[in-house]
């Protein structure tokens, strides 16, 4: 070994204008996207599961469900899209949990980096992955007879609302990832989030449910978001854009702040 190879003499660089935060976050996003490409099963599951459910509901159960609309496929696809986005967002809990328990987070914390950048990397990865999976699911839906009537403005509104929904659920997943004892435990959360759309207006109108469930379905966030997306995509009645926005924005703010607090608390034991 040569003397220059290991000699302790630290090379320091001048920080760029505005500090290191942007560059650090970009590095972390690059890391998370690479990880995403190396675990295609997450993306495949995130597409296959909603597609199977969609086909099941459209071709098996759909005929027996009265929605007050002409085609059941037009009723169910908005709900499937949100189920897809929710499931995809929830898997972030697993990535965060494996960072927290695997020692990697300790390394980030001993670097001159704000370790929260690692969380941001996972969130951006979730948004990108969900953009891919929801687009593909909508494509399959089209093949299954889904015929949206939305114009460009409505599509844009749908994209914006789904993005907000994904961000809110992803940051919630980050919280779960921080507090869970490991990736396996965090994985349970993805199933919990899968069940939320069942007790909502995603598959059947809440009016057809027993009273208690109808109440749950009416006042949980998936219903107004689904109804709004459905209204924008196929012109169905019952859209509540303000309620949907309020739910997503509120959840996003609460989850983002909670994640930062949980993370700091775990960092300064």
């Amino acid at each position: 070994m040569t003397t220059t190879a290991l000699a302790p003499a630290r090379a320091t660089t001048r920080p760029p204008a505005g500090g290191w935060a942007l560059q650090d976050t970009a590095a972390m996003i690059g890391r998370s996207l690479r990880r995403s490409l190396r675990t295609p099963d997450t993306l495949i599951m995130g597409i296959a599961l909603p597609v199977i459910l969609m086909l099941l509901f459209v071709y098996v159960f759909g005929g027996a469900i009265q929605t007050g609309q002409a085609a059941y496929v037009d009723y169910v696809v908005p709900g499937i899209v949100l189920l897809c986005a929710g499931y995809g967002a929830a898997t972030t809990a697993v990535s965060v949990a494996s960072d927290m328990t695997g020692g990697l987070m300790n390394r980030f914390r001993t670097l001159p980096v704000r370790p929260v950048a690692a969380l941001t990397g996972h969130v951006v990865e979730s948004v990108v992955r969900n953009a891919v999976s929801t687009t593909l699911v909508v494509g399959v839906a089209y093949a299954a007879g889904f015929r949206p009537t939305a114009g460009p403005g409505e599509w844009l509104a749908v994209a914006g609302l789904v993005l907000l929904y994904v961000l809110a659920l992803t940051w919630t997943a980050v919280c779960i990832g921080i507090v869970s004892s490991g990736p396996e435990a965090a994985n349970g959360f993805t199933f919990a989030i899968m069940f939320l759309p069942y007790v909502s207006s995603a598959f059947v109108p809440p009016e057809s449910m027993p009273r208690v469930l109808e109440w749950v379905a009416t006042y949980q966030p998936v219903t107004p978001v689904t109804d709004t997306v459905r209204a924008w995509l196929v012109g169905a009645p019952g859209g509540q854009p303000l309620v949907a926005l309020a739910w997503c924005a509120g959840l996003l703010v609460v989850a983002r702040l909670t994640a930062a607090w949980l993370f700091r608390r775990r960092a300064t034991r």
Binding site: R10, T12, T13, P15, W20, Q23, D24, A27, M28, G30, R31, R34, R35, R38, T39, G102, G103, L104, N106, R107, F108, T110, L111, P112, V113
Partner: peptide, 30 residues
């Protein structure tokens, strides 16, 4: 800025290559 820690659990990213790990950490170390 003065230290490095090698813990009981190898603090490297399993889903990156060895080279990518070094490049990522070099970037994060500025």
């Amino acid at each position: 800025e003065a230290i490095s820690l090698t813990g009981q659990y190898a603090a490297v990213d399993e889903l990156l290559t060895g080279r990518e790990n070094l490049r990522l950490m070099a970037r994060l170390a500025h």
